[in-house]
């Protein structure tokens, strides 16, 4: 027999979840089946899906390459201004994504280092590279946060034992630390991809939001909404919901403990 307190809290939880479900799920009811299928296989949508997956995979790979040494450093080593480093890396999680977009545009554009890069023949804004940079900046803090928790969670004495048994610091990192952090690495990778796929405002600013050129799924949703093509817009939204749902479900299943702790 559940107590009144327990029943009340479960009731609140169910009510809130239902509201979320109804609001998100209502999007699935808007387009007609034919409208959805036509939008899904349209040239523009296929381009948006491909570009989103392509840029997200590259960004997530870059994020993981940079994230592993950084998360390990923050978890294991002490150095001056470590707390400040953590705050700076966490910042993009706290303020609106649009701020990251504007900051990047200012820095990489003609007001920043853009002119110098142009002389060298390098263009970092309003193209695919710009999208990858924007996704990197938005998703990186989330990935570091998860992986930092994972490394923090691993008892350093596993590494001590490995080293006492004849393995160098690097060999210990690859033989002991990384295998023990497997679930956290997986969770970090999933969250990085999910964030990259869902990034909108910064991608719009740095990528330029150009139709069939820098049009990711999130940007496609915005562009089509502004031109009144509801079917295209909602289809892009539904795809984003499905991708996010899969990413979170996979992460919940395989990496609960790594995801739950925090900075």
């Amino acid at each position: 027999m559940r107590s009144k307190f327990e029943l009340m809290f479960i009731g609140i939880t169910i009510a809130i979840t239902l509201i979320f479900f109804v609001v998100i799920g209502s999007m699935f009811l808007i387009p007609t089946f034919d409208g959805f299928i036509n939008a899904l296989f349209s040239e523009e949508m296929v381009f948006a899906i491909s570009l989103t997956l392509f840029t997200s995979l590259i960004s997530a790979t870059l994020i993981m390459i940079c994230c592993i040494p950084m998360a390990y450093t923050l978890a294991r080593y002490e150095f001056p201004l470590k707390r400040l480093f953590k705050i700076i890396i966490d910042l993009p999680m706290a303020f609106p994504e649009i701020v990251v977009g504007i900051a990047l545009l200012m820095f990489l554009g003609s007001n920043g280092i853009g002119n110098y890069l142009e002389i060298l023949g390098i263009e970092l804004v309003f193209n695919t590279t710009g999208i990858i940079i924007a996704q990197f900046f938005v998703a990186f803090p989330f990935a570091v946060k998860v992986l930092y928790s994972t490394f923090n969670y691993i008892d350093p004495r596993y590494e001590f034992v490995s080293r006492s048994l004849g393995y160098s610091e690097i060999a210990t990192f690859f033989n002991v630390t990384l295998p023990l952090a497997k679930k956290g690495l997986f969770a970090s990778g999933i969250i990085a991809i999910a964030r990259c796929i869902g990034t909108f405002a910064s991608v719009l600013f740095v990528g330029g939001g150009i139709l069939m050129k820098t049009e990711t799924l999130a940007v496609s949703m915005y562009l089509n909404l502004s031109t009144g093509d509801i079917d295209m817009s909602i289809t892009a939204g539904i795809l984003l919901v499905i991708i996010s749902f899969i990413a979170i479900a996979v992460m919940e299943k395989y990496a609960k403990e790594s995801y739950s702790s925090s900075f």
């Binding site: 008892d155 001590f160 034992v161 490995s162 048994l165 023990l180």
Partner: peptide
């Protein structure tokens, strides 16, 4: 030099 800990620290994987 080898070390043995109270909580063994055997590699769980």
């Amino acid at each position: 030099i080898s070390i043995v800990y109270q909580d063994t620290i055997l590699f769980p994987n």
